[in-house]
Design a protein around this nucleic acid. Structure first.
Lengths: 138, 138
DNA sequence: TTCGACCTTCCCATCGTGGCAAGGTCAAGC
DNA sequence: GCTTGACCTTGCCACGATGGGAAGGTCGAA
């Protein structure tokens, strides 16, 4: 099948499939006589694997390692588990970070009258440039 | 003071201060005879405002609007509150998204033996390309 | 043959930041 | 005076992952 169909079937965009090939995440696709990229069942399988990995938030670099493990029948599942665990740790850190910001902002918003008057604790906070955001939950 | 001192005092990098000027977030700085940017007390105040806003996760576009409100003495605090509330909503969405991914991954990791054998539920999931609404975020 | 849908490559934009290069300026020490 | 090092200037390139679009080739059906 051509790239358009492969894109539809995998959920990736044709643009991204070409990009993945250009950065070496995918090997060069077979070409038709006229130069069109051709994808078979195995290729499609790989594309789906990539899409699912991206959907789970893995970076292209991580996807690349996951792909290698997937194709390596002598892999130890411990390696995959470790990669996924590291990714979870990254997610945890991000979630904590965003949650901290959220709390600070919520606090400020709750203290703001939100009426026609100009006085605003939110702006006052921004103005003060408080250094440790997480501790600012008064 | 020169840009280096302004950077140190505000917590921004000199690079970013120049960038903010180039995109119009900051007005053109006063210049010394030799072309050095000069920053006074008010300028520093603004830089600190920007840094704090960025620290709270506002985009440069939002910072721009916050700055305008800050400088507008006839502002209604409701406008600031609304802007902040919208930002909280964005944070909420992101947190939900990441939490969803985290849960899925944690589940997979917990089901993986993580030993020397190749069998791995994580790879099996990626292979299957499961699409659940919770995780289809892009 | 023509038309529309597809494909190709290549470049540019995003967002926010860092890095580096080539050059100008300034203040301190000799 | 002159050198040195720290600072400043502008400008371009890079990241990560993706989208947009231009300019042109190919295919299949009417």
């Amino acid at each position: 099948m051509n790239i358009g169909q492969a894109a539809k079937s995998s959920g990736l965009s044709a643009k991204m499939i070409r990009h993945y090939e250009s950065i070496g995440l995918l090997g060069p696709a077979t070409r038709s006589e006229s130069g069109y990229r051709l994808y078979g069942r195995n290729d499609l399988h790989t594309l789906v694997f990539i899409r699912r990995s991206r959907d789970l938030g893995f970076s292209l670099d991580e996807v690349s390692r996951l792909l290698a493990l997937w194709l390596d029948r002598t892999r130890a599942s411990a390696e995959v588990k470790s990669l996924a665990a590291k990714h979870i740790a990254v997610l945890d850190r991000k979630i904590d970070e965003l949650t901290g910001l959220r709390e600070t902002l919520l606090n400020l918003v709750n203290h703001c009258h939100g009426d026609h008057r100009p006085d605003c604790p939110i702006l006052e906070d921004l103005e003060a440039g408080i250094v440790s955001p997480r501790e600012r939950t008064d």
